[in-house]
Simulated assay, not measured.
Amino acid sequence: MGFRFANVAGRSSLVDDAGDYYDLERMTDGAVSSDPDVVLADLDVLTAAQGRLDDMTPFGTLDGADIRPPVTPRNVFAVGLNYADHVAESKMDVPTTPLVFTKFPSCIVGPNADVELRSEHADYEVELVVVIGRGGRDIDAADAWDHVLGLTAGQDISDRALQFAAKPPHFDLGKSRDTYGPLGPTLVSPGMFADPTDLALTCAINGEVRQNSRTSNMIFSVADQIAYLSSIMTLAPGDIIFTGTPDGVGGPNGIFLQPGDVITSEVEGIGTLTNRCI
């Protein structure tokens, strides 16, 4: 058992299997805060409340709701070239250690936010995103999942011209333009999945599926990434990790996002990001 969390119009909410949401403060008569950052610090409260949803009346459905990023990140880590097929299409060498860069937190937006194109070389990358719940330093890979608050979906939108404008490339700037980090729609605890290490993820542009893989195809697993990052610095609650994207991105084929394009990204058990390019 666990929880399925969403930030609806800035308020803490839980989500049932049908996609209906329940405002936590209202369903508990004020016993639980409406502030998502406060609520996410108490996993026992979330799990207990999730178990009560069958006896509650939903406040609405996520479809059409004002859904915001489920977490306000402290640090945003990202891992590049983490699927062998994406390494091959990029014509690069398979990394022997995780290739880590950062997306600046200011780029994070909600799951249905518009993506503001600022060049003719914007690309899409669907990713599983890990949210740290219990921090630590030198976390062993065998214990890494004990430090995961939940999983969500993300789009690592990338301005390839800006990314490769310098040598060596500056991934951070190319991936951190305003709106270049859609996140959501839900944050789901690991216990809600049959196997949180093997989830389907897809990305479609205007209904055409471009990316289709499973997270079990990662070169460096979620546990590997947490162990590696925590060997360098102390991870803290609210840190998030974009864990890499599979093949099918537009750059290698010279196919970039255009105004009016709709990016539809989905991670199994988490939900769908729908982002219109403007």
Rank of each mutant, 00 (worst) to 15 (best):
P169S: 08
H170D: 15
F171C: 00
F171K: 06
D172C: 10
D172E: 12
D172S: 15
L173K: 12
L173C: 05
G174S: 05
K175W: 03
K175D: 08
S176M: 09
S176H: 11
S176C: 09
R177A: 14
R177G: 12
D178W: 12
T179A: 08
T179D: 08
T179F: 00
Y180R: 02
Y180E: 01
G181F: 06
P182M: 03
P182F: 01
P182A: 03
P182R: 04
L183A: 12
L183M: 14
L183T: 08
G184L: 10
G184V: 07
P185D: 09
P185N: 10
T186M: 12
T186Q: 13
V188H: 11
V188G: 09
V188C: 08
S189V: 03
S189N: 05
P190F: 03
P190D: 03
G191F: 08
G191C: 06
M192S: 11
F193H: 05
F193S: 03
F193R: 03
F193C: 05
F193I: 00
F193M: 05
F193W: 08
F193E: 02
A194P: 00
A194D: 15
D195G: 05
D195N: 15
P196R: 13
P196Q: 12
P196C: 11
P196A: 14
T197A: 15
T197V: 00
T197M: 08
L199D: 13
L199A: 12
L199H: 14
L201F: 06
T202P: 02
T202F: 02
T202D: 01
C203Q: 06
C203E: 09
C203M: 13
A204F: 03
A204S: 15
I205Q: 09
I205L: 15
I205N: 07
N206R: 14
N206T: 09
N206S: 11
E208S: 13
V209I: 15
R210Q: 13
N212Q: 13
S213H: 13
S213V: 00
S213K: 09
S213M: 04
T215E: 02
T215M: 02
T215K: 06
T215R: 07
